[in-house]
Write a protein that binds this DNA or RNA. Structure first.
Lengths: 143, 143
DNA sequence: GAACATATTGGTAATGATTACTATTTCTAA
DNA sequence: TTAGAAATAGTAATCATTACCAATATGTTC
């Protein structure tokens, strides 16, 4: 319950170790394994979504309703994209494919306002950042 | 060059170790490290795309043009989705967000015809599979 | 409430994909 | 050919995640 509460509190889609730190403030004796284990259970029960886009760590989302994400290639933060999902796209794919379509996920990549301000980039720098960020999201929790 | 050629030959979006096996048929002395290193270089030069959707392994795509993917939750295979990308979606997000939008990726999830045939699933089974498949894509190269 | 069965946890070890490292090999150009 | 630079093979290190297990907590029955 604490894990779920803390996850719902933040908008940052934290990775397991980040959430572990948050939970530890309330339950100083929890173990990282417990966090992983219960995140898995919460995912299975459909209350939490596991995000597996770029980067070396998975992120967790306390909002399990269908929505898209927006990732900053510069600092690595992931936010909810402020547009509503277009489910019609699944319909159009159904017409073209023999797959039984279950769902779809969308990730936008871009540069967040803060990073734009901090370090306006040339196109080349942006491309380089876009490559780098694959390795590991740079920024951690700020919430 | 051999790495790129082999990658372009297959439609299966292989993981590094799968591609390693393919390359080894032509260059029996290559090391896995060389495959990783050159895949990285090919990605940086824009000739290869790294796919970081679900599963524990990254996949590589010899087609770097913008397109969507379709993953079977049952066997883990990843194919190109036979619909063209809708770039307008980036426009609509630009109106709603202060991010500088660079691009977007879409992954559809579903059940491939073969898996549908092999093992028609109840809704519950499908959900369970959909959870499981996050852990590790089941099927490997068949090409 | 005591006695027992069951479930969950903490702590640590194992796993596995990726990256880093380094001695050796291969290329390059004068 | 030969010195210097670049790439490679093979192996070690890294790090997120998972597995394991003894210990603890929780629940249940009488």
């Amino acid at each position: 319950m604490v894990i779920l509460e803390e996850l719902k509190k933040v908008a940052s889609h934290p990775a397991a170790d980040e959430l572990y730190e948050l939970v530890r403030r309330r339950l100083p004796r929890v173990s990282l394994g417990t966090v992983y284990r219960n995140l898995e259970l919460l995912c299975e029960s459909g209350m939490v979504r596991k995000l597996e886009y770029g980067g070396s760590q998975r992120r967790y989302d306390g909002d399990a309703t269908h929505h898209y994400h927006l990732r900053c290639v510069s600092c690595g933060r992931v936010e909810d994209a402020p547009i509503k999902p277009v489910s019609e796209i699944e319909e159009s794919l159904r017409k073209m494919s023999d797959y039984e379509i279950i769902g779809h996920h969308v990730e936008f990549v871009g540069i967040c306002p803060e990073c734009k301000r901090k370090a306006p980039r040339t196109a080349t720098q942006t491309k380089r950042a876009l490559r780098k960020e694959k390795k590991h999201g740079t920024e951690r929790i700020t919430n």
